[in-house]
């Protein structure tokens, strides 16, 4: 029963903070609200009995990526309010894009059926032992390929950022 209340609480916080990412005037507040959203999502993972995913979510998103965002925003000093250009063309384009996403959402929700996945307490797949076994036996090739992809992205970023000495 408690997990029901927790679910609604986390969902409410997640939705409100996600809205605040868009609504807040200062970029740094947006970054912090996005971090809060990630924390509530991690809470949802724990409710689904996927502790490993929850902690990794916090380490990777809140601990690494959002810190990088925060760094960039701070160093660029984007703390002047209302800095974003809002020309008529911009408004027109964003209205069309938003409307199209809305249509896609309606299309998806139309064919949506409520499925029950059973009691998440009983599914043990989110625990680190089971997840590790599956990742390193059945899905070893995609796993290694994705790590090579990350490595190449990192090397590429270093190469681009390096000053040309010649």
């Amino acid at each position: 029963m408690l997990s029901h209340y927790l679910f609604f609480f986390l969902s409410a916080v997640a939705l409100i903070s996600a809205m605040m990412v868009l609504l807040s005037k200062k970029p740094i507040h947006s970054v912090l609200y996005l971090t809060l959203t990630f924390f509530t999502l991690a809470g949802h993972y724990i409710l689904l009995n996927a502790q490993f995913l929850a902690v990794v979510h916090i380490i990777v998103y809140a601990g690494a990526i959002m810190v990088l965002f925060l760094f960039t925003v701070m160093l660029l000093n984007l703390n002047i309010e209302g800095e974003f250009p809002k020309s008529t063309l911009m408004k027109f384009v964003s209205a069309i894009a938003g409307g199209m996403i809305f249509l896609v959402l309606i299309g998806t929700l139309k064919s949506f059926e409520v499925t029950t996945i059973g009691n998440p307490e009983l599914t043990q797949i989110g625990l680190v032992k089971n997840l590790g076994k599956i990742l390193y036996s059945d899905y070893i090739l995609p796993f290694e390929l994705s790590s090579i992809l990350f490595l190449s992205a990192m090397v590429g970023a270093v190469m681009l950022g390096k000053k040309d000495k010649n």
């Binding site: 502790q51 916090i58 809140a62 625990l127 680190v128």
Partner: peptide
């Protein structure tokens, strides 16, 4: 069962 990862997470949000 993820105690070590939990400490990683806490250290990483210490910033």
């Amino acid at each position: 069962n993820i105690g070590v990862l939990y400490t990683f997470a806490v250290v990483s949000i210490g910033v």
